[in-house]
Design a protein around this nucleic acid. Structure first.
Lengths: 338, 338
DNA sequence: TTGTATGCGTTATCAC
DNA sequence: GTGATAACGCATACAA
């Protein structure tokens, strides 16, 4: 039905071996033969069947990226970085979404088990460390953006402890001493680590930690509003709030504005709000949200670089690579130091 | 090296055919044999190699979704719909990004030429109609969200003319008679059609069309600000602006606010701004942007449903399916009819 | 109910 | 420089 390498060989008056050779530049072919083959390919509209090729070569040159969701998140630049590095090294990245559902994640990982793809990168997984440690022995799998405690798997992530600390130090440098935090009930390592950084910054600056100043909800932006309400209803409310994500920061800003607060302007009835991630939204929102920028693009490039090295060298280097983040100043934090 | 169906057969003491049969439930197998096979599969940790299977069956059950980008767009729910319908029908959706680059789009389409995937859905393509018409003869390809004029390809899109008209009629119903539009220089059919709807609404309501009231820029949200500036600097500026996308609407709102206008509150120095798409951002922004909601999820489901039907029935029904949109009222449009 | 044998389209190993 | 041909892992027609 479909035109195969045999048809090309016949049309060109050569053997399939020769056709394969010109297809892959795998050996020297006489100019005459090469020309005949190329002509035949054009005339027949031949396109090699990669199922045959991949089966024979035991490789697909495709890496699967499994992402929880792609909307309103910082995954987009990460994926971009992944794709650029993959292209550079002769691979393709294909993306699929798990909606943070473990069974779905496992179902998708099947594509690496059944050789549909050569490897998978999990961008924020809920799979347990034990399972991962088991899988990583047999398959090429990497983590990205979110590590899993106890998992000895190639991981590329931001330095959440240091960056959380940096963020809070920034708030302190702006004169804030009573600082709240909006985090998540989910004990994702990134949340936990950012909390650690929060505590560290307070400690090092001689500010007592007050448990009531840390709100824990969910990831949806509405929980930023929830957190704001709760924190501001304290007897001694904060002057600044550090949110674990930009989405939560935006939710907090919305609620603050709705309640008649100003945000990041200083003066009476003002609140300073800081985010994390530097998603596109935080630059568009009013006020622009001051935040921490993860090196998303680089994270993506590095994880693919290392993963492909593992694949091609048949190694399983399970290093954990941790990258620095930067503060991005915008308009949601006021300087209240006089 | 890897465990194959042969190893399972040997371990289970049956033939590869029997293993294949229990793997696919393709024929009745004795309980005893089935059990032995299943035990062997578990013990050996066998996972069928889909490259072999797909080569043999001439199908992959994978459909490729090619999207320009996934950040800040309405593609996310479309993809969700695609995935749900695909799952229902035994397919997987894999996503890849083209960044609106034609060579990249063609490179990605190669995955359908070389049988890595069974079909492709282009969500907003820049490929020319002729090329598409040619491809569609040999491959399973569909368009989604954005049609291509002159392309006789299975397409599922929103009714942009009617919806643009609806949006402007909504503005008129709120008392606006001088209405501007922020569109794009790019003559994408969706842009053109929304402009058509804009004109139609004016005509039917006896409002003269004024060419200076329509600004054309690019898709980036900054152009919403550009458009706002230009429209408001007219001798007779509009009281309301219809934007071709929510992103542009947000850009316009930002600029309006920066210039000291209020948005959607009525009264002196107020401007009403309306968007299109109903992306997540438009619900989070302040003010919430009144917009037109595309049935994204359904668009995704329908295109996959039809595409799979074409694949399995070896048909090439190239229908164009057009779906209605709804107005979503939020806070960016004021009622100025007294 | 089961096994044998063939072929899917390709690449790689030979021998020439 | 080239051509046979054997594999890659699987599903299936056919025979038993």
């Amino acid at each position: 039905m479909n035109v195969t390498i045999k048809d090309v060989a016949k049309a060109a008056g050569v053997s399939v071996a020769t056709v394969s050779r010109v297809l892959n530049n795998s050996a020297v072919v006489s100019d005459a033969a090469a020309e005949q083959v190329n002509n035949a390919i054009k005339e027949l509209g031949y396109s090699p069947n990669f199922l045959g090729r991949n089966l024979r070569k035991c490789e697909t040159n495709v890496i699967l990226g499994i992402v929880p969701s792609v909307e309103q998140s910082y995954y987009s630049p990460v994926i971009h970085g992944m794709q650029d590095m993959a292209a550079e090294r002769g691979y393709d990245i294909l993306i699929t979404t798990s909606y943070s559902d473990i069974p779905t994640e496992m179902r998708l990982l099947n594509m690496v088990f059944n050789r549909t793809v050569d490897a998978a990168v999990l961008l924020g997984t809920h799979i347990e460390a034990e399972v991962l440690n088991d899988l990583v022995k047999r398959y090429n799998i990497a983590l990205c953006c979110e590590k899993v405690d106890g998992a000895n798997v190639l991981s590329v992530i931001a330095d959440n402890v240091t960056s959380g600390k940096k963020a809070v130090e920034y708030l302190i440098s702006k004169g804030h001493r009573r600082i709240g935090m909006i985090s998540t009930l989910s004990r994702a390592p990134s949340s936990v680590d950012r909390e650690k950084g929060f505590r560290k910054a307070l400690e090092e600056n001689g500010i007592a930690f007050d448990d009531s100043l840390i709100f824990k909800g969910d990831y949806g932006y509405e929980y930023g509003g929830e957190g704001f309400k709760q924190l501001m209803s304290l007897d001694e409310p904060p002057t600044a709030i550090f949110c674990i994500s930009d989405l939560l920061a935006v939710g907090a800003i919305r609620e603050a504005t709705a309640q008649g607060y100003t945000v990041g302007q200083g003066g009476e009835n003002d609140i300073s709000i800081m985010g994390f991630d530097n998603i596109l939204l935080s630059g568009m929102f009013m006020p622009g949200v001051t935040t921490v920028s993860q090196p998303c693009y680089d994270i993506g490039k590095i994880v693919i670089d290392r993963l492909i090295s593992n694949i091609s060298e048949h190694k399983h280097f399970n290093e954990q690579i941790i990258l620095d983040c930067d503060i991005v100043e915008r308009d949601s934090v006021a300087d209240i130091s006089e």
